[in-house]
Design a protein around this nucleic acid. Sequence first.
RNA 1: GCUCCCGUCAUCUAGCGGUCUAGGAUACCGGCCUUUCAAGCCGGCGGCGCGGGUUCGAAUCCCGUCGGGAGCACCA
Length: 529
Amino acid sequence: MSVVTPVREVAAMSTPTHVPRVRFCPAPSGWLHVGGARTALYNWLHARRRGGAFVFRVEDTDAQRATDESMRGMIDALSFLGLTWDEGPQVGGPFGPYRQSERQALYTAAADLLLASGAAYEAFETPDELREQREAAQAAGRPPGYAGGHRDLTDAQRAAFRAQGRQPVLRLRTPDTGTVEIDDEVRGTVTFDWSEIADFVIRRADGTATYVLANTVDDLAMGITLIARGEDLLSATPRQVLLISRLLAVEDGTSLLARALASAGLDGAPAPARPGYAHLPLLVGDDRKPLSKRHGSVAIDELRRQGFLPETLVNFLALCGWSYDGVTERFTVDELVERFSFDRVGRNPAAFDTDKLRSMNGDRIRDLPVAELAARLEPNLVDAGVLPAAVTADERALLAALTPLVQERIQTLAEAVDLIGFCFADEVAYDEQAVRKHLKGRAGEVLDAAAVALAEVEPWSDGAIMRALDGVAEDLGLGRGKTFQPVRVAVAGSAVSPPLPETLAVLDRATVVDRIRAARPLVAEPQQA
RNA sequence: GCUCCCGUCAUCUAGCGGUCUAGGAUACCGGCCUUUCAAGCCGGCGGCGCGGGUUCGAAUCCCGUCGGGAGCACCA
């Protein structure tokens, strides 16, 4: 399906709201965490549902923080989740480039035009002076925002500042009176007083664009119809709304934005319109504080490494702030696309509940076809060093046989490592506690008898092994607990493993018998013989 | 300090004036099952922040209050 052409047709009909264009625009610093992924997901879902376009734009205007590594991480994480973008890095699109570092000429042109039109003005305060003003204002109980000191400088004053070697920033003039109403798809109408909103910087002294400018210009230039982002940006919205008005202001038949686009030699959306808004509730940690590294794993890549399935993550993230009917919690991606809408998004912040995530992941693991699960387990076992990078056919066959045994015992793929790692190891790593607890008393007799019984049992199958072990138990007059556990510890090194007969059956008889004999000396004999 | 947002079990959430002695899920507790660990099944614990209104009737509407969060940057 083409996601680009319809926009032009729609623009021609001047009803741009029919085909939504949404975007996800992270700053490439750090990793994609669950909050960002949730924002990306909601946007993606919205675009997919209405046959619109999902635009991925990289906001790397702050060269200090942006890194290529982070950029790759974002791309990998989105790809892992299956959130494919229609326009953006790697795939291009009609309104590129999609990295803001490559669009500076556009912001410069827009800022120049804003200055020429009188919407913006030059301010010469240094960062230190602004900090002092802010502190003084705070101390006096006044709002800390810019007070408008350089709003109405004369040419002579500006020249004097320049003569001192100062470089000005550009500030946008905000109204002194009146209100702005923001019509938000999740919050309804939110009203702000213009008097609360100070003149803000759109271009830094070094000539680069700030977030508000770059972000607003690009949303317009790229024909974005709905801006869905975190609630933390709600109070920045009036400034963007104002900037949008200034950018869309028409003079001599062309908008300021169109002129900026032309002078930068870039293509923009044919008929940019004022985008709508949807401010998503914050995703917080289990302590109700904003998510950070302290909250364990909140990076998508880390969750992937731990063995969370992308379909679980997508399902779970969808539920972090959105609900369908309050009862249904299990959704396929297609069902989400079909059902998602911003009007079902809640307004209160959601805590990221790892326990529930694990539970949902376990459910999905259990529902996977065995062969599929085995295939997904493999890379995790390789990462953990249980399997070599080049997995042999034998190892793969063993994994396939083991997979049904772990399927209902793990919540994450990584948990399989502890459960069946011993099956692939050359040597058993004995858990000290397990040895102390189970290799004592009559365990020696059990191991001796089990070694003999298992060396002879025919066929080498779980049923026959079960009967052999039961025979040992009966001969010694012990229960299954007292017989199975010593054998389990001898073979697995641990008191916890998948069901014993089934597990032994998939291993070589020789391996099993050897391990039982090798463990024999570990048994602590009773003090009195 | 100012502005804005939010407030149902520990957690996520349903609820849009009567069907709510507030429903579901996770976690937790107990039982069944049982060779360990799980899974599964059954049962249990547990909540409308508070105070005023409006109304025959309020978790639902209004006001206040308290609490939490975000923003007020030459960061995004």
